[in-house]
Simulated assay, not measured.
Amino acid sequence: MPVRVVDTATPSSQPSPGQDSNAGQPSPPSCSLLSAGRCFAGTQNVSSLQKDEAWKVNVRIHGCDLEQGYLCGTMEALNVPLADTPVVTFWEGEIVDAKNYTFFTGKWEASPEDDIRHWSKFSSFTPLLSQIETDGGKSLDLSNYPHIFMRWKEQYFVNVGVDCGLTIAGFYYVCFSCSDGSISGFYYDPNSSPFQKLELKCTNEKNSGFTFSSYELQ
Rank of each mutant, 00 (worst) to 15 (best):
T105C: 15
T105A: 08
N79V: 09
H118L: 08
F103S: 00
T105F: 06
D84V: 13
K201F: 14
V160R: 09
C175R: 01
V6W: 04
E76P: 03
Y145E: 02
E216C: 15
C64S: 09
D52K: 15
N100Y: 01
H147E: 07
T105S: 13
A110R: 01
S193K: 12
A41G: 08
H118F: 10
I95Q: 00
A77W: 12
T10Y: 14
W152Q: 02
F210G: 06
Q155H: 07
D65C: 03
F90Y: 10
F149C: 06
P194R: 02
D163T: 14
G209Q: 05
Y156H: 10
L49A: 13
N144H: 13
D52T: 12
S214C: 14
S35K: 07
S208H: 11
P29H: 09
H62F: 09
R117T: 12
G165A: 08
T126H: 04
V87Q: 08
W108Q: 01
W119F: 14
Y145M: 03
K206H: 11
P190Q: 04
E67W: 10
N100H: 01
L217Y: 07
W55R: 13
L78K: 11
Y172V: 06
C178G: 00
Q68A: 05
G181I: 01
N45K: 08
G18P: 02
T105Y: 03
L34K: 09
Y187L: 01
K99V: 08
A54P: 04
L49W: 11
L71M: 12
P28L: 03
A83C: 15
F171G: 02
W108R: 01
V46H: 12
L129C: 02
E205K: 10
P11K: 04
L198A: 04
F122E: 07
A110V: 00
S12T: 14
K121E: 07
S213C: 06
V158F: 15
F212M: 13
T134W: 11
D189N: 07
D189L: 01
S192E: 01
H147W: 06
W91Q: 04
Q218P: 11
Q196I: 08
Y188A: 02
D135N: 11
N204Y: 04
L200W: 02
E205Y: 09
V3T: 13
P15E: 02
P194W: 03
G106Y: 01
K56C: 15
S111R: 01
D20Y: 10
S32W: 05
N58P: 12
S30C: 11
A77S: 15
G137H: 02
P194C: 05
H62N: 10
C164Y: 10
C202N: 12
K206S: 13
G170S: 03
P146T: 10
Q25Y: 11
N45L: 10
T203A: 11
S30F: 07
A54N: 10
P17H: 01
A23M: 12
P146F: 04
F104W: 10
P81M: 10
G63K: 05
L129I: 02
S193W: 13
R38G: 13
M1G: 10
C202L: 15
V162P: 09
Q131M: 09
L140S: 07
